[in-house]
Write a protein that binds this DNA or RNA. Structure first.
Lengths: 378, 378
DNA sequence: TTTAGATCTGAATCGGTGG
DNA sequence: TCCACCGATTCAGATCTAA
């Protein structure tokens, strides 16, 4: 989660799950059935899986597997249990492979509608995936319900999962908050459907029936991957995932069994230009910024020993000591510990709790840390 | 896997055992476990089931806000389940009873969050329920994600189901469209959480941790039940379903095992006043409104033979004939047929296409039909 | 009495590191 | 695996408090 990976952890991962990116089919669309295609990839090798599986449950009529193959009907009449079962088996198969290929700290995204998402959600939970959020893509311009028989089906659902309850994952909190005008990004995303110039067409007709908008993938990849990460899309279609991945400086691998879609995707992605390095940089959360001890500020003269620091209401006025500790009356402690003690709170962020005066202005001591960090960059 | 009862069989059963409303415990909250309680109800006896089952939240330790205060979490015993398997069994049990009690043309609503809704959705599909829509309740004021670790969980999901793929169901399309300012009601509903005067409190603390807003139930009941219908809520809590049902002139039955909730619900519902008959009347969809032939308007003097009718741009001016047909130049036809012919369109709604003058105003001829329908009601 | 500011709260699967 | 410690983190709306 926007963690700054420690050297120790990085080494452990590198040795335990040694997969060189060079050994992966980066920027390639694997032909054939996605389960078979994924079998050719090593364990723990991709950082993110984005999947837009088919949801042709085929209830009622003739029965085909979602991969297009014919169901071996013996004498059977098919009812919905049979077709749910086939869809469930298919879902379990591809999710199992995706889980194997995904790194322990990677994340899985699946998009679907009410026809299939409840089956997919239950199965991925059964497999051990841990749902972090379900995201609602609220369409600004959905197809109306022409017959007036139901509510206009105006959304689709995305599931975002880690490998397990205790698994780590990456979330670029600060980038999402920035993208959302300094408010936390919510679980409902308002985006138009894919149309206009973005929609791939061949001779006036759309190449793929369910092409997803690039804005959707943009948000998914910006939120949960880093530059250079590898993204796998087992149902690549016309390559929206690949196009956006390339634009954002991520690596990609696709699986797609239809020639037409593969050709269209390769052409499309070839035209795509990666953004500048500087454009891809996102706002960093404080979590991943280097740690600065308060003592370092004192040591380096950003805050002088003897400085008076105080809370917003000046209820407590403490003194900075030479070693970076604070003293209030008989009590002594770190900026966090003393703040916690005095308030009787479960925890305290000393950086924002304590203030000091600079040129007549009152600022949190975090301001001194920012100055220090700026100076360090040069 | 359980045997799926066919729609045909269900209908047969329903007709064999007709249930008088007088035999039902209307306006009562059944004590004890909801599965046991539902067993006391006859087959095919209620028109709608609305269920807000426990969500099976898996919460860790305490959660503090950035200001140090503690979040009052849902830690009640009724939300504790040891595993998915146990939760699934529980879900299958209550859904099975709900299915038995629900009429063949009734509908089921379930509300949940990502913790449980995928399990519930898959199981109800397995049982034969047919999802008509999934509805997203977008909260205007959700709790933020204090730790900055995920997207703000800003919605809950409702599933609306019929008894099966071929089953009939009721949807008050026109009422929903009217409620939504003459636009089709969408699958995403924007509503605030329950707070303020609506939130039941005892000595300053909330009676129930997850009381639902009345506006949510209002929309559910208005959309899919009729006046006099019986609504069953197997997880009655503090009785939001009952209160709104009573207000809207629907009958209700609840199940609730906590004394505290039952007492609060009875008190609350006693205070509730039913709306006037006239207020409950909703816009009738054209399907259930009596069909009116244009000829009947002519016959009854709402539009005189010889009246000139015309399209909005007055490109075509036709004459009403005594039998209700229209004449334009050499062409003659019904209001729909002639409109279609003249425009060269695949179809035409004559009621909105043709206009006439009344007291200097230009109105679509549908206005005359509305007058006629109003007169018919008296 | 009014208003601005402070406080409180809601179905929440809500940390990482090093010893 | 558990524990101590560091330190990052919130939005909208209702209600309460003080001026």
């Amino acid at each position: 989660m926007a963690v700054l990976e420690t050297t120790k952890a990085r080494v452990a991962r590198a040795t335990t799950f040694a997969v060189a990116k060079a050994d992966l089919p980066l920027g390639r669309i694997l032909d054939g059935d996605c389960v078979e295609a994924m079998r050719s990839l090593p364990d723990n090798s991709v950082d993110c899986v984005f999947a837009d599986p088919p949801y042709n449950l085929q209830l009622g009529g003739d029965l085909n597997r979602p991969d297009g193959s014919q169901v071996d009907a013996v004498t059977d009449h098919w009812d919905q249990f049979d077709s749910f079962k086939i869809y469930d088996d298919f879902t379990r198969d591809w999710l199992t492979e995706a889980r194997r290929v995904l790194k322990p700290d990677g994340s899985l995204w699946v998009i679907g509608s009410y026809h299939n998402i409840y089956r997919v959600g239950a199965i991925l939970q059964d497999l051990g995936f841990w749902i972090l959020n379900d995201i609602v893509w609220r369409k600004t311009n959905p197809m109306p319900n022409f017959k007036g028989t139901r509510f206009t089906n105006a959304h689709e659902t995305l599931l975002w999962c880690s490998q397990g309850e205790k698994a780590k994952y990456h979330f670029n909190y600060r980038a999402m908050k920035t993208l959302n005008d300094e408010l936390q990004m919510r679980s409902d995303w308002v985006l138009p459907i894919c149309s206009g110039g973005e929609r791939l067409k061949e001779g006036g007709t759309k190449v793929h029936p369910t092409q997803k908008p690039e804005a959707l993938l943009y948000r998914v990849l910006l939120a949960t991957t880093e530059k250079g990460d590898v993204v796998l899309d087992p149902f690549f279609g016309t390559g929206t995932t690949g196009a956006v991945a390339k634009r954002l400086g991520r690596e990609w691998i696709g699986c797609e069994r239809e020639n037409v879609y593969r050709d269209a995707a390769y052409k499309r992605i070839a035209k795509e230009l990666p953004l500048d390095e500087s454009a891809i940089e996102t706002m960093q959360s404080k979590k991943s910024a280097p740690r600065v001890a308060f003592g370092a500020l004192v040591e380096n003269g950003y805050i002088m020993p003897g400085t008076k620091v105080f809370d917003k209401k000046r209820k407590w006025i403490a003194t900075v000591r030479a070693d970076g500790s604070l003293a209030y009356d008989k009590q002594v402690g770190s900026i966090h510990g003393l703040g916690k003690e005095l308030q009787g709170a479960p925890s305290c962020n000393g950086w924002s709790f304590w203030h000091y005066e600079v040129d007549g202005d009152v600022k949190p001591i975090d301001a001194a840390r920012q100055l220090y960090l700026l100076a360090m960059e040069d």
